[in-house]
Simulated scan of single mutants.
Amino acid sequence: MDRLPLLSTLAGAAIGIVATLIADRNRWKREDDKEALRLRLDIYTQYTSAVKVLGETLRALGRPDGPSQGWWPRRYRGHHAFPMLRSDRLGPGRREL
């Protein structure tokens, strides 16, 4: 009995399976890289937004007339800074900074 056609068929099938696995792995890796980039850009956007809000808040606190936006709590409007930011309320931890 001739075994060469059987071995050729098995070798072809093995090569096809390996090629498919490699192609799937490359596709998975490419999709994973895209997802990681999207997630990183989303985190960078959130960080930049938080820094912007912080800058606006600190700028409002630094004004001589204090914060005047409508969203600011009424008890803090007109003050130079939040009471918890005044130096007499920082506590003993301020010396460690």
Rank of each mutant, 00 (worst) to 15 (best):
I22C: 00
L21V: 14
G91W: 06
A13V: 09
S8F: 03
Y76F: 06
V53T: 14
A13F: 04
D32S: 14
G70E: 11
G12W: 02
E31A: 09
E56T: 15
R77P: 01
L54F: 11
A23S: 14
Y44F: 08
S68T: 11
T9L: 11
L21K: 09
D42F: 12
A81E: 03
E31N: 14
R77I: 05
S87L: 15
D42Q: 13
R38A: 15
R89L: 12
L6H: 09
W28F: 13
L21I: 10
K29C: 09
E31F: 14
H79Y: 08
L39Y: 08
K34C: 07
W28T: 09
S49F: 15
A36P: 01
I22K: 10
K34Y: 12
G62P: 02
G55S: 02
R75H: 08
Q46H: 09
F82H: 05
L6Q: 08
T9D: 10
A14N: 14
G62R: 01
M84N: 12
A60H: 03
R95S: 08
Y76I: 06
K34S: 12
P67N: 05
A81Q: 06
P83N: 12
A13H: 11
F82R: 04
R86Y: 15
I22Y: 05
I15A: 14
R95A: 06
R89A: 07
R86F: 14
G55M: 01
A14I: 02
R74F: 05
H79M: 15
T20Q: 01
A19M: 06
L90Y: 04
S8Y: 04
L10A: 06
R30V: 00
S49T: 02
Y47V: 14
R95I: 04
R25N: 07
D42M: 13
L37H: 07
R74T: 00
S87Q: 15
D42C: 13
Q46F: 10
R59T: 11
R75M: 03
M1T: 13
L37M: 13
A11D: 09
R77M: 11
E56L: 09
G91N: 01
F82Y: 04
T48G: 01
K52V: 06
W71I: 07
D33W: 04
I15S: 10
L4G: 13
V51G: 01
R74P: 00
P73V: 00
L4C: 03
L97K: 10
D2A: 05
R74W: 01
D33T: 06
A13M: 08
E56G: 11
R27D: 07
G55A: 03
P5S: 00
Y44P: 04
P64Q: 11
A81T: 07
H80Q: 08
R95V: 07
L21F: 09
R27Q: 12
R75E: 10
L54Q: 11
W28N: 10
G16I: 03
V53I: 12
Y44R: 05
N26H: 13
R38F: 15
R94W: 00
A19I: 13
L4I: 02
G70M: 02
L54P: 03
I17H: 00
D2T: 04
L97C: 09
G93Q: 11
L58C: 05
L37W: 15
N26M: 10
Y44M: 07
A50H: 09
L21S: 13
R74L: 10
L10W: 02
G66E: 02
